[in-house]
């Protein structure tokens, strides 16, 4: 299970998964159910937006290798959120390695569906 694997990474505070339909979410870590629901709603919205953006980039530059979107990262002063496909992780900037977490997520989710259904 990827969420459990992510939680084993140094500095990962929480990890979660959401459905693109918006009707389901699961999580592990230092957040409560309300926060996990909010995180799922925000992550889903951001993923939808990235999906559209790389679609536009592809139309602009078909050979650029943008499409399909794999994920996104939001970096705050203390915490970072990494998202690949429909899985996210909350990181403590002081302890976690974004590179390691993104590497693990991209490896495990390499074959995730890209049509957001």
């Amino acid at each position: 299970m990827l969420l459990a694997e992510l939680m084993e990474q140094r500095g990962v505070l929480a990890a979660g998964e959401y459905s693109y339909r918006g009707d389901r979410y699961s999580f592990k870590g230092e957040i409560d159910d309300d926060m996990a629901r909010m995180a799922a709603i925000m992550s889903r919205a951001t993923s939808m937006s990235q999906h559209m953006q790389v679609g536009m980039l592809e139309q602009h530059c078909p050979d650029c290798g943008a499409n399909p979107a794999q994920g996104w990262i939001v970096r705050g002063p203390q915490f970072t959120v990494c998202n690949v496909a429909n899985v996210y992780a909350f990181l403590d900037n002081g302890k976690a390695s974004i590179n390691a977490v993104m590497g693990l997520m991209r490896e495990r989710l390499a074959n995730a569906p890209v049509d957001l259904v």
């Binding site: 926060m35 925000m42 996104w72 939001v74 970096r75």
Partner: peptide, 28 residues
């Protein structure tokens, strides 16, 4: 906007102000 909403709703800190954003495409 999300960081602001999140921090207000969850009464936590650490995301605002957002310092960076990364769009991860297929190859870059």
């Amino acid at each position: 906007m999300q960081a602001r909403g999140w921090e207000t709703s969850s009464q936590s800190g650490g995301f605002y102000p957002v310092e960076g954003f990364t769009l991860v495409g297929m190859q870059w």
